[in-house]
Amino acid sequence: MDEFGELALREREARRIARRQWFWLHLAVFATLQVFLYVVWALGSASYPWFIFPLFGWGIPIAAHAVYAFVVQDAEEIMVQRAMREGGEQE
């Protein structure tokens, strides 16, 4: 891999790490607030479990964020990795 390729690889890794850090921060805020809401529910009448509404309502975007942070790759990343694989196979 040439120098520019290494620079691009470091940039992709940095972007991947940043995405995952944002996800962990999002998850931490989500978890803290859900615990708080559960405690409010438990200390209250504790009858109808209303805390499940924000749990699922916010849980779905959390799941989507997780997919974005850990699974999704940019089209350019896929193209570069494919080209690197093909270049390796040719060698």
């Binding site: 691009a8 940019d74 089209a75 350019e76 990343e77 193209m79």
Partner: peptide, 12 residues
């Protein structure tokens, strides 16, 4: 404008 974008565009 990132190195990855430039690299991908050059490949294309």
């Amino acid at each position: 404008l990132t190195p990855t974008r430039v690299e991908a565009t050059l490949i294309a």
